[in-house]
Amino acid sequence: MSARPSEEHADIVLCPDGPMLLRGAAVVQDEDGVRHRTTRPVTAVCRCGHSAIKPWCDGTHKLLRD
């Protein structure tokens, strides 16, 4: 895999009313200092704070909008 993506392809994407997408292998440290290694090529990181599988997104943000 190329280590340097093209400019038209972001490594981090902030989704409107949604999670942060993170491309590539990374270690995410949560609010409690616990570190979580990504396990897939693109990961959705929770931004609403209400996911049941934090730090990852589980779609719960969609319920908050209703």
């Binding site: 949604g18 999670p19 897939r40 599988i53 990852w56 589980d58």
Partner: peptide, 14 residues
């Protein structure tokens, strides 16, 4: 699918 599709839905839409 909870975890994977939270990613896929963002990619599929936009």
């Amino acid at each position: 699918h909870v975890e994977a599709d939270a990613v896929h839905e963002q990619l599929a839409l936009r």
